[in-house]
């Protein structure tokens, strides 16, 4: 049996998790305060996932940029591809929280959505 230690990053509590492995199989997860910690630990040993947050440029808005996120977590290895894909994206104001900015970013099957409202610049 092998033990691996993680810090749960699903929320700012940052619980210290211990995963007991038998070969490729997860035998037990300990140290989590809630169920998300258990899920996180299992994923972290098999397929680590992250939410990516960034900004994209806005044309004609009250702000120059709007904040965005991946609607769900994407594989850790895809983070940079995702960030690069957002580099030259420009959207027209108005943009509202939850609007889809890009579909299927970096072939992850996950969309990019806005996390803020940016109204049009007053004429």
């Amino acid at each position: 049996m092998e033990e691996r230690n993680f810090i749960c990053i699903c929320c700012p509590m940052g619980c210290s998790l211990t995963v007991v492995m038998k070969g490729e199989e997860v035998v037990e997860v300990a140290g989590n305060t809630c169920k998300r910690g258990d899920i996180y630990a299992r994923n972290e040993v098999i397929n680590p996932m992250r939410m990516v947050t960034s900004t994209v440029k806005v044309i004609g808005g009250r702000e120059n940029v709007v904040s965005v996120k991946t609607k769900e977590d994407i594989p850790k290895g895809k983070i940079f591809e995702c960030v690069r894909a957002l580099k030259d994206v420009k959207v027209n104001a108005p943009v509202y929280m939850g609007d889809t900015i890009m579909k299927n970013v970096a072939n992850t099957g996950v969309d990019i959505v806005a996390t803020k409202n940016v109204e049009c610049k007053e004429a």
Partner: peptide, 15 residues
């Protein structure tokens, strides 16, 4: 703009 806010209050992870 990063995520990780409000899990304890809203049971979902927000920016």
């Amino acid at each position: 703009i990063h995520n990780g806010f409000g899990l304890h209050t809203f049971k979902e992870e927000l920016t």
